[in-house]
Design a protein around this nucleic acid. Structure first.
Lengths: 119, 119
DNA sequence: TCCTTATATGAGCCATAACTAATATTAACG
DNA sequence: CGTTAATATTAGTTATGGCTCATATAAGGA
């Protein structure tokens, strides 16, 4: 486990404006205006964050006619990570008891599970 | 997905000094001196971070004779999350291609898997 | 070419939090 | 009680990065 690598990654996504943007884009595709409308964040702030997310390959941009730029998540499953963190942290910050029921699975087990399409 | 909740959680663990501390403690238990020795971080910095981690219930402290305080992770499986992030981000920052093979499993699937002790 | 809409970018400001230095507290022993 | 080792705490400093303002750029239509 490389603390620097993990820190870099968690800081990349661990900002509420960015989380709003990622969540807004979701599994589909959205223009900047749509993201702005949905998040309520200022235009320049959205563009600012999108640039970083784009440079770091979390999102992918494409132009499709007009001045519109569409953004999609390069790996939509990252939303699952965010949801898991939300669920974990939500309980985690609370009683600190219910979170005991959940354990983060080992990486290899996550790999196997998604490869098998476990039902 | 509450951006504020997730942000708070990711910022809590998304610091390289803290990651080093969590990794040092591991699945066992360690004194502050041991953590200092293993991480190479200054004593006051370790104590500073441990206080926050303690207050936020990521670690649990106990005294066992002498001036020694032992720390353990309240939920050691969080190390699995860190390892997964490491693996994901490591590939992620690289070619951006190999990470495609891995998808973060949905929360419910993670719950089921750990409940079944899937092999 | 000019205008409009959509979006991007850069510089500077400001908020946050990690870190350090100094010191306080805890536990145990002589 | 004084001393030592281990650890915690506090105030101030510093580094980081989010955010804002002003403006630049891209695309398309008249």
């Amino acid at each position: 486990m490389n603390p620097g690598t993990v820190e870099k990654f968690l800081k990349l996504i661990g900002d509420s404006s960015r989380l709003k943007i990622l969540s807004s884009i979701g599994a589909g595709e959205k223009t900047v205006s749509e993201i702005i409308g949905e998040t309520g964040l200022p235009q320049t702030l959205v563009s600012f964050h999108l640039k970083i997310l784009r440079d770091r390959e979390v999102v992918v941009a494409s132009r499709k006619g007009g001045p519109f730029v569409h953004y999609r998540l390069r790996d939509p499953s990252i939303l699952n990570l965010l949801h898991a963190c939300d669920a974990y942290a939500g309980k985690f910050d609370g009683s600190g008891e219910e979170a005991r029921e959940f354990e983060w699975p080992p990486w290899k087990m996550m790999c196997r599970m998604m490869r098998r399409g476990d039902q």
